[in-house]
């Protein structure tokens, strides 16, 4: 379990980093915390001649309030995300999801950008990004562009980024008013990838109807999933008339590519997924309700 030899690069700027990526092409891989990449290298499941460590680039650091939301640098560690007051104020779903990411040693090294760019459907941050309509700031040798989360996640461990592009930061818009958030996951053990999980945000209006809601699904397809039809069915309804079990069923209804593996068949994942959605919905609604009754 020793990796094959590679050259290590630690560029100081985004421009240097993308120039390296462009120059080295397929022989290079971005190293952004290494909590997935390094084990794969050590097991020789993959090999790269060059690793470009982006964690020392100043532009990729820090958490800033921006346009009522929060912008998180791609190299910000999970541990920082989980303890940031700015994140907790603007995107509580991320704060709630963070303790479920691996173990604390992993959260001390792993980065938000690394997790999102790795695009594992069983990971917590990609689903949160999708649910919260986060936007991805991306750099390439020819300039910058921004993608929505929906555009960003294209397939299993695959994003819309080109090989010479890198993720610089992610912006999460804030939810205002009477909003509530909850994350529910079921895994074999604490810290394992979830068998299924749900990240729910809900905003109630002054009459306790659902003003808007968002459901991010974990480990229920090749990408993080978002059951938009289910969300649409719930908006406008009095929250007291919504059976959480129905929310779970609705959320599972549109899923077409639930995976089967050693930890669970597709049918079982749907059963667990529906329960996680129902439980997260219940807690998110309770959280929203504490924001001041109508």
């Amino acid at each position: 379990m020793k990796p094959a030899a590679f050259d290590y690069h630690a560029p100081g700027t985004v421009e240097e980093a993308v120039a390296l990526l462009a120059e080295l092409g397929d022989d290079a891989k971005v190293l952004a915390g290494g909590q997935s990449l390094i084990p794969m290298l050590a097991l020789r499941l993959t090999a790269f001649d060059h690793l470009v460590d982006v964690c020392r680039i100043p532009e990729l650091q820090g958490v800033q309030q921006r346009d009522g939301g929060v912008r998180i640098g791609a190299a910000v560690r999970h541990a920082q995300v989980g303890t940031s007051p700015e994140v907790a104020a603007a995107a509580p779903l991320l704060t709630l999801a963070t303790p479920l990411v691996g173990h604390f040693q992993i959260r001390n090294r792993g980065t938000l950008g690394g997790a999102i760019a790795h695009a594992d459907p069983a990971a917590e941050y990609p689903a949160a990004a999708l649910a919260l309509d986060a936007t991805m700031d991306i750099a390439s040798p020819t300039g910058r562009r921004t993608l929505t989360a929906q555009e960003f996640f294209t397939d299993l461990w695959t994003t819309a980024m080109e090989p010479d592009e890198m993720l610089v930061g992610v912006t999460f818009p804030a939810w205002g008013g009477r909003s509530g958030f909850a994350v529910e996951e079921f895994a074999r053990r604490h810290g394992d990838y979830a068998i299924a999980g749900a990240e729910v945000a809900v905003e109630l209006d002054e009459t306790d109807r659902v003003r808007r809601c968002a459901i991010g699904l974990v480990a229920l397809g090749p990408t993080p999933e978002r059951p938009r039809e289910a969300e649409a069915e719930l908006v406008g309804r009095p929250v007291s008339e919504i059976d959480p079990a129905e929310v779970g069923r609705l959320a599972m209804a549109g899923l077409t590519a639930v995976t089967s593996d050693g930890n669970g068949s597709a049918d079982y994942r749907r059963r667990v997924g529906a329960a996680m959605v129902a439980r997260a919905w219940t807690r998110a609604v309770a959280d929203a309700s504490t924001e001041g009754a109508a």
């Binding site: 079921f186 074999r188 068998i195 079990a245 930890n263 669970g264 068949s265 079982y268 059963r271 667990v272």
Partner: peptide, 15 residues
Amino acid sequence: TPESLAALVPPEALR
């Protein structure tokens, strides 16, 4: 395994 235990509880038994 959780799945093997869940299989002992049919969905209709869950309310």
